[in-house]
């Protein structure tokens, strides 16, 4: 990680919810992503993957706040930008594809309109050009008969088509960084593969970077070059796909991978114990209560350090 990273997250802490439901959802997560890298963030639900991604675009829900941390994009601290400066980053420099595309599209505007308006806002072109661009993007994302389909409303699209349209909208301004948050959840298996290929191909062709959030190791292995493993709001391991999947360092990564490798043969393995209650703060390693190697030293939180070249882990035993 010697080159200047495209995006760097340092010690991100996010709190979400009100009063007794306040959850420390992200606890000092740190991440880097270089140009042309495709980083997969893997973790169980509630591990803070999505909130980390939403923090990059400063799109946390109303009850969520970034308590601490810095997020640098091309050297600029995104957290210090004004809302209007931020709106030139969103969609143009960094874009995002949400899960459940059907709900993510405005039901009262045609799909073409929604794509065209994003393009027009960022590129300042004529409405006519923007419309042509929208059709071009629908075509590029594999929507049949795009000239006609551009006039359709989201309710006239199937789930897979809506996801393609949303991808078209995210990519219309050729962003440097694309965030895809579980983009294939809820889609048919065959369509899942198509949508993943679409995202991967586009990112490769446009020489941009990708953050792919998923709880499915297979999805990440299919698309990404690098992996970050998150647990209970912290990043426990980062490295290249081969390093992390072939020789995982953190005990959590090892346990997680084991669950996937033996899948389908007899009894499904699982990690004993449960995720810590995120309403409380903890001094020590978050995984220690479930870790077979846990010892006294684990009462102090391990920091993410470079154990091998470009392979980082947060564990005292590596």
């Amino acid at each position: 990680m010697s080159q200047n990273p495209l995006l760097e997250i340092k010690n991100l802490q996010v709190i979400i919810g009100r009063e007794e439901n306040r959850v420390h959802a992200v606890r000092g997560a740190s991440l880097k992503i270089n140009e042309k890298e495709r980083l997969g963030i893997i973790g169980e639900s509630g591990s803070g993957k999505t909130l980390t991604a939403l923090s990059i675009l400063r799109l946390l829900p109303a009850t969520g706040i970034i308590k601490e941390g810095e997020i640098y994009f091309q050297g600029k601290d995104l957290l210090s930008l004004s809302e209007s400066e931020m709106s030139y980053i969103r969609g143009k420099q960094i874009s995002i594809v949400f899960q459940n595309a059907a709900a993510a599209l405005n039901p009262l505007f045609t799909v073409g309109q929604q794509i065209a308006e994003v393009y027009r806002f960022h590129e300042g072109c004529s409405a006519h050009e923007a419309w042509a661009k929208a059709i071009e993007m629908l075509d590029a994302t594999g929507i049949p008969d795009p000239t006609r389909r551009a006039h359709a409303y989201p309710n006239q699209f199937s789930g897979g088509m809506a996801q393609r349209a949303l991808i078209a909208m995210a990519l219309v301004c050729s962003p440097k960084l694309l965030i895809a948050d579980e983009p294939t959840t809820g889609l048919d298996l065959t369509i899942q593969a198509q949508v993943l290929d679409l995202i991967k191909d586009h990112v490769i062709q446009s020489c941009s970077s990708l953050i792919l959030i998923s709880h499915d190791i297979a999805v990440i292995a299919e698309v990404c070059t690098n992996v970050a493993v998150m647990y209970a709001g912290d990043v426990l391991e980062v490295g290249s796909l081969e390093d992390v999947f072939q020789s995982p360092l953190s005990p959590y990564s090892k346990a997680l991978l084991k669950c996937f490798q033996i899948e389908g043969r007899g009894q499904q393995p699982y990690i004993a114990g449960k995720v810590p209650d995120l309403r409380f703060q903890y001094e020590g390693c978050l995984f220690a209560p479930r870790c077979e190697f846990a010892a006294d030293i684990c009462r102090n939180r391990p920091v993410l350090r470079e154990v091998k070249p470009n392979h980082w882990a947060a564990c005292h035993f590596t």
């Binding site: 675009l57 799109l59 209007s84 931020m86 709106s87 030139y88 980053i89 969103r90 969609g91 143009k92 874009s95 995002i96 949400f98 993510a104 599209l105 405005n106 308006e117 994003v118 806002f121 960022h122 949303l166 909208m169 995210a170």
Partner: peptide, 9 residues
């Protein structure tokens, strides 16, 4: 949220 995510004012 989508409109906001793509920078719409």
């Amino acid at each position: 949220r989508t409109a906001r995510a793509y920078g719409m004012p």
